[in-house]
Design a protein around this nucleic acid. Structure first.
Length: 141
DNA sequence: GGTGAGCGT
């Protein structure tokens, strides 16, 4: 009789060996389209250029892409403190048409000894909308 | 000092 009580009170430590998650012995399969896959952004006048040489500057980037259209804005992303290029940049054409030609003409090409990759840049969050002043309590006096 | 995938001062 006392053995029954012992069989109920003792096996607590043993239950952990038998009670492994029953319904999830494996990793839950990702529902797809949830992986860190970087899809290409939709066409726009803004281009993302990667694979740049560390010595490639904004001017050279503009020169290279100006062959295929009017470059309205070009910028090589550089570190603010060190001032060195991060190896990628952005190029903005006047029209989407030129942007497409810029990609077709510069993607996979060489620039300063490095193969660069040109693609449409992702949409960026808007800078600052009217209603967000930099100074908080500056209205009442 | 300048690496080597990436999405901006």
């Amino acid at each position: 009789m006392a053995a029954m009580r012992a069989a109920v009170a003792a096996p607590r430590g043993l239950r952990r060996l038998f009670s492994t998650t029953p319904a999830s012995s494996f990793i839950p399969p990702p529902p797809s389209t949830a992986a860190p896959v970087r899809e290409k952004a939709e066409p726009s006048t803004n281009l993302f250029v990667s694979g740049l040489s560390k010595r490639t500057t904004t001017e050279r980037l503009r020169e290279a892409f100006s062959q295929f259209g009017e470059v309205v804005n070009a910028r090589v992303v550089t570190d603010r403190v060190s001032g060195y290029s991060k190896g990628f940049g952005f190029v903005r054409y006047a029209t989407i048409e030129e942007a497409g030609k810029g990609i077709e003409g510069m993607d996979g090409k060489f620039l300063d000894g490095w193969v660069i990759f040109a693609e449409y840049a992702r949409p960026r969050p808007p800078p600052g909308q009217p209603g967000q002043p930099m100074s908080p309590p500056y209205g009442q006096q």
